[in-house]
Design a protein around this nucleic acid. Sequence first.
DNA 1: TTGAAAGCGCTAACAG
DNA 2: CTGTTAGCGCTTTCAA
Lengths: 366, 366
Amino acid sequence: MRDDPSVGEKRSGRPTMNDVAAAAGVALKTVSRVVNNEPGVNPATAERVRAAIDRLGYRRNDSARTLRRGRTASIGLVIEDVADPFYSGLSRAVEDVALRHEHFVFTGSSGEDPARERDLVLAFCARRVDGLIIVPAGTDHGYLAPEFDAGIKAVFADRPPGAGCGADTVLCDNAGGSRTGVAHLIAHGHRRIGFLADSPAIFTAIERLRGYREALAAAGLPYDEGLVRMGPPDQERVHAGIERLLALPDPPTALFTGNGRTTVATLRVLAAISARCSIDHGLVRHGLGLHGHGRLAGLALVGFDDFELADLLGITIVAQDPSRLGRTAAEMLFRRLSGHTGPGLRLELPTRLIERGSGETPPPTR
Amino acid sequence: MRDDPSVGEKRSGRPTMNDVAAAAGVALKTVSRVVNNEPGVNPATAERVRAAIDRLGYRRNDSARTLRRGRTASIGLVIEDVADPFYSGLSRAVEDVALRHEHFVFTGSSGEDPARERDLVLAFCARRVDGLIIVPAGTDHGYLAPEFDAGIKAVFADRPPGAGCGADTVLCDNAGGSRTGVAHLIAHGHRRIGFLADSPAIFTAIERLRGYREALAAAGLPYDEGLVRMGPPDQERVHAGIERLLALPDPPTALFTGNGRTTVATLRVLAAISARCSIDHGLVRHGLGLHGHGRLAGLALVGFDDFELADLLGITIVAQDPSRLGRTAAEMLFRRLSGHTGPGLRLELPTRLIERGSGETPPPTR
DNA sequence: TTGAAAGCGCTAACAG
DNA sequence: CTGTTAGCGCTTTCAA
């Protein structure tokens, strides 16, 4: 008689519907009705049940609910890295749409590793998420076949799925954006334009390279492989790449950078070079921007992706909208979840050139 | 005999352990043993089971597993906004630690709304997450009491919980960091220092204000409320605040900004003012940085929080480490989840002053 | 080494 | 309006 559990509300852990029912003197099902706001419960009874709920600190176990109903009201989101502003913007948009549909979001970062992408996706499937939004790191999505058979819905964002997978896909107009940006530099008189982008294993990098080539071709300019440097956008690699370009016998007068991280890394390199060569000496500076003469080691620059402070720095960019990408993908997913059928769609979102100075300087006159 | 379901593998949805058992000609429990790598299964039997698993495309239902075992192997993370680089850095760190412990992360953004924080937390609890990491928007956490009673573990990060809640907490040394930054400006000769920070409803803003006051007091300088502007860090508000400060009869010669977003907004304002007043005319500019004379509308600047490109812009800052904050919080949580007991801890992480030029300019000599 | 039975907490289906 | 029964897919006993 020292510690009789029957005295307390419950032997262990959390109170269940059964406990509430006992406390309120009603049947389990009545509690269920009250908890789920189902109609047809006597207001007085409902009140009694609610009182018991409050007293016991009862909270419905959504795991059990999920098991019974077959839907988890959650979705899985696999991206490359939440800490990258592009993906965190996308995440936020997905989260907002999900919340509006009363779903929760599991998020996982693949770090560009196809195996980790696969593990995350399958783990989310084991959790029986209702749907998936995937920014794929890999190019083979055969592993999803059993999941699709079982009825899971998936939308691919930013990059398409591997061959043979007809899932909905939202991309941005990578080639078109790149073409516009490069054409812009050409229109300002540049003939030798360096192209720095992510590794060619990445879909967006390849597409942007394609746009670069198309812009050159449209202007009747030759494609020179020596002006192209692709690889992971870490500071050292970008630095080496730019040094190589500038050491060419006929160096570029402008650069096109293929994503936000590469652009930022490039700025650091060019700043260092400018400082070293004292190119700026004696020049007047206007505000904080980089536009005007002799900035950026004398190179014109257009970058793919907008980034914080690009406006202040006066960097001309080709903007895509990560949050629109996320929103669109999430909306496509929820349309599928609410029963929409039909063949997989492939959407392409537009990009927008924003002129801020760095892309509007002419090549040096000789 | 047209569409006999017994011919296919399953009547509807996904195959279950039962289906696998039937297909392999063993009992349910044997499948369970194989799936969970439990010892004591005949290798040949195990092989037969694995074949059936592959054939049917079986994947364990973790919802059911969770219900039975009582632990969900997932944690909930509530932050202010994933799209803010500070919180996305924190998120990534939490995710990495969770993954190492084989847990998944539900993420939700509260948007500084206490009601939404509460809803998110309770929804995560309904999902029976094993633990929570919370960056609180509100100051009353009484709503967590039943959850704590039920055994849930929570760690608060970046800001402490409301009174009466003894949960583990990881903060950064807000007051100390602020004190150091302001003292740095004082050491460079400034006597009138403007303080711009987030709304006083936010813990970190209050603490940083305290540090500001302490630094002034330590130097024997008076505290002038007219130099302090607090509120949400949107561009317009910050703009108005700075205009007011500069319109004072005795305007500040330096600014201390209380978080990353405020610092960035401040840079935009100062750039606009510099351009308008042509303060820069005739000055030589070195690299991309802002250090040197006459930058930033003639004001010295130190900001709390590091941010992308602050190095390039030459902005002196008091850095905290969001990913260390996240990592520490997650590790504290998993320590609790693995049975560690004892009173709630309160950790304070150090900050670091990084000198980059904007904080080392003396006040104008008159 | 294998299996049968019970039950996690809830909702669906069907009475009263 | 309220209650009873069955069972979601799995793990946990316990027995063979």
